[in-house]
Amino acid sequence: MRSAGSDESQARRHSEGGELSAVSPAINAARSLLEFSAVSHAYYGAHGEILALDRIDLAIRPGEFVAIVGSSGCGKSTLLRIASGLLAPTTGAALFDGDVVVRPRSDVGMIFQDAVMLPWFTVIENVTLPIRVALGDLAAARLEAARLLDLVGLAGFHDAAPSELSGGMRQRAAIVRALLSKPRLLLMDEPFGALDALTREQMNIELARIAEASGCAVLLITHSISEAVFLADRTFVMTPRPGRIAEEIAIPLARPRAAETMMSPDFAALCHRVRRHFQSGGAEA
């Protein structure tokens, strides 16, 4: 199901990837998988109209990993909801494959800050729920889900209740649930925000591995600078109120990325470059 374009970007991801730095946000629309075109969003709060997003232009290519870093309340979650089709922008549009996104799509998966496991289903029932809802082949889905659960270290927990899992394990199950539908784009809304620092770092390493292996494009929303730099091909820094893209930073770190990546001087330099935007506080390291 992967297009030639995504194979190409897949190959590029595994190369040294230095040429990525030359890409500008005004990207060729035909080649982008997801594109935000002058997306603005306003809502009515207690003190009148609040502009959450101000003319966001951003494009993601097939197979690419893009991270958006911003402090809490900068509208980055709103941007993700617009991309998913859960929320309509006030003006502008999100385009997927050139089509305006008006509702959720089966080839776009989403992972929430909370794993959102339904307590009345077992882990494997939760993970295969999208297939059940889509009236797909449940038997095949269970086999594939079992394989993926084993792969993310949840062997022996297939028939457990979600409440028996730790936060990190639940989020891994949520990733399996999203990947099971073989999405072309995965939207992640601060997926590790509720986890402790140690689990979070471990999950980052696993996510890098999973994303590199699956070849699906990822749009990650985070307020962790190191997480964005470690995982992404490109990182966008967002400023709050109204949400605007302050800078696009290419992350030409070698893939596959692992724990050693975080010790390289390039990694530190890139983190520093992102951190300059948050000198007055906001995002964490």
Binding site: R103, P104, M110, V116, L118, L129, A134
Partner: peptide
């Protein structure tokens, strides 16, 4: 709201949302 969002992302029908989330 998070569970309803999850069902919307899965393109669940009204009946499926009722049976899998709202009723339980």
């Amino acid at each position: 709201a998070a569970r309803i969002d999850l069902m919307r992302i899965m393109l669940a029908s009204r009946w499926q949302t009722f049976a899998y989330v709202r009723l339980p």
